[in-house]
Simulated assay, not measured.
Amino acid sequence: MAKILETDRTYLFSQFTEFNDPPDEILAELGYQLRVDSLELPKSPTIDCSTLKNTLERRIQLTPLTSEQARRETLVAPILFEVVEPLNLKLNIEYSLVGKKAKGNLDYLIRGHNSLLVIEAKRDDLTRGFTQLAVEMIELGDCYGAVTTGNIWQFAKLRDHQITQDINLYRVPGDLSDLVSILVGILQPEEL
Rank of each mutant, 00 (worst) to 15 (best):
T63A: 13
A121Y: 03
Q154M: 11
G104D: 08
F13A: 00
S181H: 09
A70V: 07
V118M: 02
L80V: 05
P23K: 13
R123D: 13
S67A: 05
F19R: 06
G31C: 07
P78T: 07
A77R: 13
T7Q: 09
E85K: 11
K100S: 08
G185N: 05
A28T: 11
E191Y: 04
G150F: 05
E57K: 08
S115Y: 00
V84P: 01
T74P: 10
N105A: 08
K101Y: 15
R59E: 12
R59I: 09
T127E: 10
P22C: 04
I119A: 06
L192F: 00
T149L: 00
N168E: 12
E57S: 12
L62Y: 15
E136D: 06
G174N: 12
I110S: 08
T55I: 11
V184L: 09
K53H: 08
T55R: 12
R128A: 12
G145Q: 12
T55N: 13
N114R: 02
K90M: 10
G112P: 05
N168D: 10
E68D: 03
A102P: 05
K103N: 15
T66H: 10
S44I: 05
S181V: 02
D178W: 02
S177F: 00
Y144R: 06
K122Y: 10
F13Y: 04
T164I: 13
R159L: 12
E136W: 01
P173F: 15
D125S: 08
K101G: 07
L176H: 09
L176D: 01
P45V: 13
D37H: 06
P23G: 13
K101C: 06
L75A: 06
S50N: 06
E29D: 14
V83P: 04
I167P: 00
A134Q: 07
L52P: 07
F13V: 01
R72Y: 04
A121M: 09
I152W: 03
I79F: 09
L34Y: 10
I138F: 02
L109T: 00
P86W: 14
L62F: 11
A102K: 03
I47G: 03
E139I: 06
Q69G: 08
L179H: 00
S177K: 06
K43D: 01
I4G: 12
Y95A: 04
M137R: 02
F155R: 02
V180Y: 09
L75M: 01
K3L: 07
I79D: 09
C143F: 08
L12C: 04
E120R: 06
Y11V: 08
R72E: 14
R59N: 13
N92L: 14
H161I: 05
D8W: 14
G31T: 00
Y95K: 11
F130D: 11
G104T: 04
T10E: 04
F13G: 02
P22W: 08
R123T: 07
T10D: 00
K122F: 12
D107W: 15
R123H: 14
D48Y: 09
L62W: 07
T55W: 08
Q69M: 15
N168Q: 14
E6V: 14
L97H: 03
I60T: 09
R128D: 12
L116D: 11
G145I: 05
N168L: 13
A28Q: 15
D107H: 07
